[in-house]
Design a protein around this nucleic acid. Structure first.
Lengths: 239, 239
DNA sequence: AATTGTTTCAAACAGTTGTTTGACAACTCA
DNA sequence: TGAGTTGTCAAACAACTGTTTGAAACAATT
């Protein structure tokens, strides 16, 4: 029998090298595009190493996903201990942005997560349960605090998604953004500016809902004609 | 020589069947995951058909991308002819949402675009130039109209991205949303509700900027401690 | 020193991939 | 009719995929 860690250091060494290399490769080309041979070459390990240490490619990927998620969470945790809901929202947005966009984490964590969301693998369920749902719950409480206790749960959910959507846009659409606005980089300064903007925009948006139960006094968008779709769906404007 | 259409109907027929089947397959499993054999099987064509009609797999994909983009744009165009910037924004949001989320288009257009943005291929440049940049420009003018003529270009851009981010979130993160909130479907009614929400949220957010040149009166988010990152980046709060 | 359990490795395996080939049928136009 | 073009097809090609194998190297214990 082996007494856990004391036995062999090389086990943990190559295992770590595999995780390290795999994170890079998965981030670059996705799960499908990644090849076990490429990962092993970068890790300085034999092709059989993946099978030996993680069972198969999917097992390695699942482990990478979990590790990246843990790492990002511990590096930029959501700050707690603030009573002001507005400050809570700002902290939430800042930490979220840093997790997916800060230069040190975007290359791996951010891109891997983006891929996993758009093209889910079997590992997504675990990721949602362990990492995403708690975050979602946290945001729900913050928004709820901003909207007031008796707020419509649907409105709370929609506002939360509006916040997260703004954040993830910069992560998911980075290739497009870089092409549209070549100059704008996302270094630490850019991240600060982004945090300020999204927080202010979101607070104003949420407070628009808080004022009246219905969406502020905004002029309701006029329906576009549906060119050939038959039978206009019955209208239900109110939330 | 062949006089265009009169020659052989079977050419256009199998070519169309290939585009049709390929759109489905690319939407389902992405460019990498799609196999020429699967596409041809669904199209009722021979494996060699792709090579014959489109040169290679990438050529077929590029054609699918362009066709889907054209199709979505003609089906749900951005309504024009409205003078009220708020109504313009509502129309922009509605048509955008319908293009990427309406049941008839999401299965193909929406999902293919989402994949292309997260994992770009060589075809992205053409897509940006022909479809995305014009939309971006349109949105820029709308937001500019809302913020007033002398608005900071950076603020206009950020507000525009806040709008688009909210929209694309439902397209890019659909797998996650479905797991977090299993009940919420996105049929025509749900799309209407979404349109109303995002429009109201965005108008409130933008107007928060229009009031003062700086981000409303929002309490600035307090900085989270950076656990181990050395040297705090110098602070530049103002936009 | 012999034994045991663990980790690495080159080689091979079986399957799939995109693409090409050359024969064959269908059609147009003279 | 017959030459010439065009589209389809089964088969094959070479390259690459994830995974397995059995032997070798290694470290620690007996």
């Amino acid at each position: 029998m082996r007494t856990a860690a004391s036995k062999n250091a090389s086990h943990a060494a190559t295992r770590g090298a595999l995780l390290h290399a795999a994170a890079d490769v998965f981030a670059e080309v996705g799960f499908r595009g990644a090849t076990v041979r490429d990962i092993c070459r970068r890790a300085g390990a034999n092709v059989a190493a993946v099978s030996y240490h993680f069972g198969d490619k999917a097992g390695l990927y699942s482990e990478v996903l979990a590790e990246q998620s843990r790492l990002a969470q511990s590096r930029y945790p959501v700050p707690t201990g603030d009573d002001d809901p507005a400050a809570q929202l700002g902290g939430f947005i800042r930490s979220f942005l840093q997790r997916v966009l800060s230069p040190e984490l975007h290359a791996r964590h951010g891109r891997i997560m983006a891929r996993e969301m758009v093209e889910p693998t079997a590992a997504l369920d675990r990721l949602v349960a362990e990492a995403i749902r708690p975050q979602s719950e946290m945001l729900r409480e913050i928004v709820s605090g901003l909207l007031g206790g008796a707020a419509d749960p649907t409105a709370v959910r929609l506002c939360g998604m509006s916040v997260v959507g703004q954040i993830l846009f910069y992560c998911h659409c980075r290739p497009v953004i870089d092409r549209l606005f070549p100059g704008a980089e996302l270094d630490a300064t850019g991240l600060d500016r982004l945090t300020t903007h999204i927080t202010a925009f979101s607070l104003a948006g949420i407070r628009g809902f808080a004022a009246t139960g219905t969406p502020s006094r905004a002029s309701a968008p006029r329906r576009t004609e549906r060119p050939s779709a038959s039978g206009a769906a019955k209208r239900t404007d109110r939330t």
